[in-house]
């Protein structure tokens, strides 16, 4: 997990006046899975297309195995890059059988070698018996795995996956996701996966790159982008969370309506006396019914596996608190907040 297979350095791409990707820098090591997390239209698919050589950057450069593959002036064509890509629609060739689809990328092999390699990747995706079917005769989950098999067959040095699970039934999604992850891990392949689903990103990725409006805001482990987001924007994209204001005290804590809380931060301009916002996740606080408590339960939402209470603070700000499924506290009750963990909480200056 050290040599960088893919490197994007200051990559920018505009379409007309619209800047789709702005100054994006990140790298992916051998065997590593990086998920680009962002809402639709944020430029994440463009990043993949740039890496694959399907778009040319306006600025910056892309390196593959240490060699320059894309600059604004010169670019290696997609067929000479050794990068595989699985698109959202899978793009299986409708006029070819599964076998022909999978063998399509195996140009330089003899027929026997082709046959062996096809059999090998088909068993990798566990669909050995479907080789003579046509794509339209397969379920979407099978199509997805064939697309992956086709991409893996030429042994690419990296694989790009564009929303690979979004066309799969919700019930099957986590199973297919585990299969894909296993295939990537077993083959020690670098992968970049694009998704708008943070649970998916957290579940599969070694690192998550949070993207919006064409910019990468933070590239870090799933735990880090969740617990210590670098900005309010990242916090909102990576978690269901509320914000609570407070003033920084001398000893590295923040005085808030919900008590004195420890904080941690990426920003350098926070010092005693400055106003900050802390990120509060729904499971950070528990509650106790107390008739003289300062907080009021404003709303109650039963989720099946949990009950989420909306708690109004004296200032009018609200926090969501996740309680167990059997929690019987109803709206209108007065409660106290109890800290579930010592912190620290991510802080941003206001």
């Amino acid at each position: 997990m050290n040599e960088a297979v893919l490197q994007c350095v200051g990559v920018t791409k505009s379409f007309g006046d619209f800047v789709a990707v702005r100054d994006v820098t990140f790298d992916v090591s051998r065997g590593e899975i990086v998920a680009i997390l962002g809402s639709s239209g944020c430029g994440k698919t463009t990043v993949l297309r740039l890496i694959a050589g399907l778009e040319r950057p306006d600025a910056g450069q892309i390196l593959i195995r240490g060699e320059v593959a894309s600059t604004p002036q010169r670019q290696t064509p997609p067929d000479k890059r050794g990068i595989g890509m699985v698109v959202q629609e899978y793009a299986l060739f409708p006029h070819m059988t599964v076998r022909q689809n999978v063998a399509f990328g195996l140009n330089n092999l003899s027929n026997d070698q082709k046959k062996d390699r096809v059999a090998e990747v088909m068993s990798l995706v566990r669909l050995e018996n479907l080789q003579d079917r046509y794509p339209h005769e397969l379920s979407s989950g099978q199509q997805q795995r064939i697309a992956l098999a086709r991409t893996m067959a030429p042994r690419p040095s990296a694989v790009l996956l564009d929303e690979p699970f979004s066309n799969i039934d919700a019930g099957l999604r986590s199973e297919v996701r585990r299969d894909v992850e296993e295939i990537l891990r077993v083959n020690d392949i670098a992968a970049v996966l694009v998704t708008h689903d943070r649970d998916e990103a957290f579940a599969i990725a070694d690192r998550v790159a949070v993207m919006s409006d064409g910019e990468l805001h933070q590239v870090d482990t799933p735990e880090a982008v969740y617990h210590l987001p670098s900005s309010k924007r990242v916090a909102q994209m990576t978690a269901t969370c509320d914000f609570i204001e407070g003033v920084v005290l001398q000893d590295g804590t923040v005085d808030t309506e919900a008590g004195i809380l420890a904080y941690d931060t990426h920003s350098s301009d926070i010092e005693p006396g400055s106003s900050v916002e802390l990120v509060i996740h729904p499971d950070d606080f528990g509650i106790d019914e107390n008739e003289s408590g300062a907080m009021i339960v404003q709303a109650r939402e039963f989720r099946g596996d949990a009950t989420v209470l909306m708690i109004a603070l004296p200032s009018g700000a609200t926090l969501r608190c996740r309680q167990d499924s059997h929690c019987a506290i109803t709206s209108g009750r007065r409660v106290d907040l109890i800290l579930n963990r010592p912190g620290p909480f991510a802080a941003f200056s206001v």
Partner: peptide, 8 residues
């Protein structure tokens, strides 16, 4: 594009 990425 998929075909291009497969080395053709």
């Amino acid at each position: 594009e998929a075909a291009r990425c497969l080395g053709h």
